[in-house]
């Protein structure tokens, strides 16, 4: 239950680890608006539209950054929570083994820490929704927490299933083991856990069929309902943090399914390959999610627990299978 044992905790490896983490945050931050652009563009094209191009979310962000936020009287957290959300998203991206499996010895990329950081971001946006004092904000927050309560155990159990054969709950150790033994990716344990993980990532990031990111009907909103009152710069931070979270989680799933390209030791060449690999993987995963979404409708809120229960069962079966099938 610790960081990768391959790294000796000396100064050079710490410096390399820091460099990798900073680079990882920068690359993901730059890529996440483009990822959303690609996902929207895939949808536009399949709807027969031309679409504004993959740079539109970046343009939206740059514009929002230059707009003053409007804050209703009595609202206190509106300026703080968007920054807190961005902080947790950056921390999440820093912890996940997206580009390299070399970790900083002091910072654990442990599964339980990652789930904790995920939940921290969820609480931050739920507080933002509650703080606006509107009916829709509170409704969105309560729905978001309901879904989160069903999602977090599944994330834990699914990644736990993957960690049993490796003998470590560090995500980097899991990815390392998958590169060393690629056959383990298509083992029944791994497949069950990956399907469970994909379902919870879709629920966690508010994509179809759990939540419709482009809806205008307040009564069906989950994520959108919480940010209805955010404006200007604050809205920019909120959007950016949820995009970054989506990019990070898609990257994690992609790295667990296709672990190749991740840098296992520190070298400039390895990092360069890792940057290209993660960008390609995240973009392909995003395009795939967007293409599947065209065929889906949002399910009723009361059906969401059924979907998430199914994913929990798959994660549980994966854990069971990991003890039976070696």
């Amino acid at each position: 239950m610790s960081a990768s044992p391959a790294v000796a905790p000396d100064l050079t490896s710490t410096a390399w680890g820091l460099l990798a983490v900073v680079l990882q945050c920068c690359v993901l931050a730059a890529v996440s608006p483009i990822l959303i652009g690609v996902m929207r563009q895939v949808r536009y094209r399949m709807e027969g539209r031309i679409g504004p191009g993959i740079w539109q979310p970046t343009r939206d962000l740059l514009k929002l950054a230059r707009k003053e936020p409007l804050v209703a009287p009595g609202v206190r957290l509106q300026g703080v929570m968007p920054i807190a959300m961005t902080g947790t998203s950056l921390l999440l991206v820093a912890l996940l083994p997206l580009m390299s499996t070399v970790t900083i010895p002091l910072v654990p990329d442990d599964l339980f820490v990652v789930v904790g950081v995920l939940l921290l971001g969820t609480v931050a946006i739920a507080l933002l929704g509650l703080d606006s004092g509107t009916a829709f904000g509170g409704m969105g927050s309560s729905r978001h927490m309901t879904i989160a309560a069903l999602v977090e155990p599944t994330v834990l159990v699914a990644v736990y299933a993957l960690s049993i054969p490796v003998g470590s709950s560090a995500l980097s150790a899991i990815v390392d083991a998958r590169i060393a033994e690629p056959v383990s990716v298509v083992s029944p344990v791994s497949l069950l856990a990956l399907v469970a993980l994909i379902i919870v990532v879709v629920a966690e990031t508010g994509r179809l069929p759990v939540d419709n990111p482009s809806t205008h009907l307040e009564l069906t909103m989950v994520h959108e309902a919480m940010i209805l009152e955010a404006s200007g710069r604050d809205l920019g931070w909120v959007e950016f943090s949820s995009w970054l979270r989506l990019a990070g989680l898609l990257g994690l799933v992609a790295n667990l399914a296709l672990p190749w390209g991740v840098a296992q030791s520190m070298s400039i060449g390895g990092l360069a390959v890792a940057i290209v690999a993660i960008v390609v993987k995240v973009m392909l995963a995003g395009a795939g999610v967007a293409a599947v979404e065209v065929f889906l409708a949002k399910v009723r809120l009361f059906k969401v627990p059924e979907l998430l229960a199914a994913s929990f069962v798959m994660a549980f079966l994966a854990v069971t299978a990991s003890y039976l099938v070696v």
Partner: peptide, 8 residues
């Protein structure tokens, strides 16, 4: 793009 809130 059409949005759901005047704040946006």
């Amino acid at each position: 793009r059409l949005v759901a809130s005047p704040r946006h």
